[in-house]
């Protein structure tokens, strides 16, 4: 029978294909990302920062090194003992920067994570159901978008008090609308595709279709925006701490370290410069990674 013959031919092709590893979409995307030198550089930097944040306590003990003042050693330049020098209270800048990474990353990742989940849920509901629900949700998002995010953050922190949690809340709330928009736009383009109609034809419920079929296909722009969002959140954290509305001293945070060193800029430039460099390098690395992810995830660039 003709079908048996065709199956045999395909069997042979399958055998040769089996030699290459299972090629899931994510493996394909990782392969594309690896080709991008800049993106891998960014990824390497971020990995180093994450690792130092995770192992911060092993690098420098919090109470004795990071917070404890040591006025005898204040404002010393980089040396063998203090790799990046000391600040105005005699504290080791390197140790403070490593612990500061913890704060920045924590706020960045959690703020973006919460914004993605809330914004993503709102956006997918708005996009899938359309009509009045879509209108109501997106107009509320527009209201939040109309308020400048820094002002919104300042308002929230002034009302609720400066703390890590309130900072995360402030940054989250101002990012929710952009994730809602991104996810809604993805959902709108995916829900008209034939495999969604096919999913309806097998009797899948709306919830199942959104969670198992639509959202996994809309991840690409969210991942890209999320990476860049972490960069933005870190910058906002630094900015708010700089003006005193973020992390309170003596807790180390890059922005407040930057602010604290301002008055000594002329003769102890290292106090401000090193935290500033840390902020800059982290943002740069995240941007490079985000750009690389955007290229790797673009289905049109088939290499």
């Amino acid at each position: 029978m003709s079908m048996a013959a065709s199956v045999k031919v395909e069997d042979k092709q399958v055998e040769t294909n089996r030699e290459s590893k299972k090629r899931s979409q994510w493996a394909e995307i990782w392969r594309r990302l690896k080709k991008n030198k800049m993106a891998m550089f960014g990824l390497a930097i971020i990995s180093i920062i994450v690792l130092s944040a995770v192992f911060a306590d092993f690098i420098a003990d919090y109470d004795t090194v990071v917070i404890k003042q040591n006025l005898g050693d204040r404002l010393q330049g980089p040396s063998a003992k203090y790799w990046l020098g000391t600040d105005e209270f005699g504290r080791d800048i390197f140790a403070r920067m490593v612990h500061g990474a913890r704060v920045s990353l924590k706020v960045g990742i959690l703020a973006v994570g919460i914004a993605v989940v809330i914004g993503g849920s709102l956006g997918s509901i708005a996009g899938y159901y359309g009509g009045k629900l879509d209108n109501i949700i997106m107009r509320i998002m527009d209201v939040f978008l109309a308020v400048p995010s820094i002002l919104l953050a300042i308002a929230i922190v002034s009302a609720l008090g400066p703390s890590l949690t309130n900072l995360m809340l402030a940054i989250s709330i101002s990012s929710v609308p952009s994730y809602a928009r991104i996810v809604r736009s993805s959902v709108l383009s995916i829900k008209d595709q034939e495999f969604i109609e096919a999913a309806k034809a097998i009797g899948a419920s709306d919830k199942r279709i959104i969670l198992r079929h639509i959202i996994p296909n809309s991840l690409a722009p969210v991942i890209v925006q999320g990476t860049l969002g972490v960069a933005g959140a870190i910058l906002s954290t630094a900015g708010l701490s700089f003006i005193g509305m973020g992390i309170q001293p003596p807790a180390p945070e890059w922005g407040s370290m930057l602010s604290g060193g301002r008055q000594y800029l002329r003769y102890a430039w290292h106090v401000t410069t090193f935290p500033g460099l840390a902020i800059m390098i982290t943002i740069l690395a995240l941007n490079l990674l985000g750009d690389g992810l955007r290229d790797a995830l673009d289905p049109r660039l088939k290499q």
Partner: peptide
């Protein structure tokens, strides 16, 4: 009730096989 029927008692095949399957599953 219709959802219980679709895929179970009555099934449908669509026109274009290229787009009828979810690309990430």
């Amino acid at each position: 009730d219709m959802r219980a029927i679709r895929g179970n008692f009555v099934s449908m095949i669509f026109q274009d096989p290229m787009t009828s399957l979810n690309p990430v599953m």
